[in-house]
Design a binder for these strands. Structure first.
Length: 358
DNA sequence: AAGTCGGGGGG
DNA sequence: CCCCCAGACTT
């Protein structure tokens, strides 16, 4: 039976050749498992590793996390991306502490119902923390199964999930679900890699459809290709004495809950010269008495589905204009507590080393 | 079912 | 430059 052979060869590889070491491997505390899995959603292990360690050190228990202020947790998450994960993490920590007496749910369905926990993370926690027989289906598993079993169903189609999940659960070693799940993900990450997989040293050579048919580069199949948008951000950095205007992003858009400066988004690369800035400040805020300290060129940041071009215009004001009073004005020390998008931090860093300016 | 949400690393 | 990553949520 091919399925049993796959599992047998996978477990054998795991026990004898898998040398991948990560701090959450073998962990059984559901809180730590949960934290690591959320951090690792759509994130490479190497990228998430320092964040995991920082979170565990600062919040050793779920009670510690639940009691922490939002801003502090977002600051710790800063730079990791997909910030709704952080919001849901806090929400669920507080829910478990306040409504469930701090006891992490044990049943798969109960775990799945928590905010920020989907099918993958629920299976991972069930298996790693409680050794329950649920197979994880992540990007690694999609790829490994598509190749080994020659599955051409597109992995990014909702309907295909059922096929892969059913197959994954059929392959699961039900005597040791935690070990099996760890094995298949490590295998996908180190041997059956997305590009240039190490087929020459692969333990599944004898049964891998893609390898035997020479179709490794065709699998897995993806069908969606998202168009990229270009967005032009002009940030006004308004300062009055030692205070700077900041604003928390609340709209349904990128970087929700993070902070930024005063933003003007335009359709195209509009040229903000002195004259246009004068006109804008007078018309919008009735500001006349100001000093333009610096106009930066556009910095660029690539996101998955959009390219951000951001420009920074530093404007010193004699006093806080009435029309900008409802914004937050913070000094340097206060600003250090806030989480900013990467492109803003890049500018802020260059700002503190004027010699390095572009 | 399709769109949206970041940032880093590798080819 | 493009693709992918220990996915989940919203519409």
């Amino acid at each position: 039976m091919k399925q049993q052979q796959f599992t047998c060869q996978l477990m054998d590889w795991h026990k004898r050749e898998n040398e991948r070491i990560l701090p959450w491997k073998g962990e059984q505390d559901p809180y730590k498992i949960w934290l690591s899995e959320v951090i690792l959603q759509q994130t490479r292990a190497e990228q998430g590793l320092p964040y995991y360690q920082a979170f565990i050190q600062k919040y050793p228990t779920i009670e510690d996390l639940a009691q922490a202020p939002d801003s502090e947790v977002f600051k710790l998450w800063e730079g990791l991306g997909y910030y709704s994960r952080c919001k849901n993490l806090l929400h669920t920590a507080r829910y478990i502490v306040n409504e469930l007496g701090g006891k992490f749910p044990v049943a798969y369905e109960a775990i799945l119902s928590l905010k920020g926990i989907g099918p993958y993370t629920a299976a991972a926690i069930s298996a790693f923390a409680y050794n329950l027989p649920h197979a994880v289906v992540d990007g690694n598993v999609f790829r490994v199964l598509a190749r080994c079993f020659g599955i051409y169903a597109p992995v990014d189609a909702t309907e295909s999930r059922k096929i892969f999940t059913a197959l994954a659960n059929g392959l699961l070693d039900k005597e040791q679900p935690a070990l099996y799940n760890q094995a298949i993900m490590d295998f996908g990450a180190t041997i059956c890699k997305p590009v240039n997989p190490l087929c020459s040293q692969c333990p599944q050579q004898n049964l891998c459809e893609a390898y035997l048919n020479g179709t490794i580069n065709e699998l897995p199949v993806k069908e969606k290709k998202m168009a990229k948008k270009m967005r032009w951000f002009t940030y006004f950095i308004f300062t009055v004495d030692d205070k700077t205007l900041v604003h928390q992003r609340i709209a349904k858009d990128i970087w929700q809950n993070l902070y930024e400066f005063y933003l003007v988004e335009t359709d195209a690369n509009s040229n903000w010269d002195n004259e246009k800035i004068n006109e804008y400040l007078q018309n919008q805020f009735s500001i006349k008495d100001f000093y333009i300290k610096y106009i930066s060129p556009f910095l660029s940041q690539q996101l998955t589905h959009q390219t951000i071009k951001a420009q920074f215009i530093s404007v010193q004001l004699p006093h806080i204009p009435p029309m900008l009073q409802h914004y937050e004005w913070m000094n340097k020390q206060q600003m250090e507590q806030l989480a900013f998008p990467k492109i803003i931090n890049e500018y802020r860093q260059s700002e503190s080393f004027p010699a390095m300016l572009f």
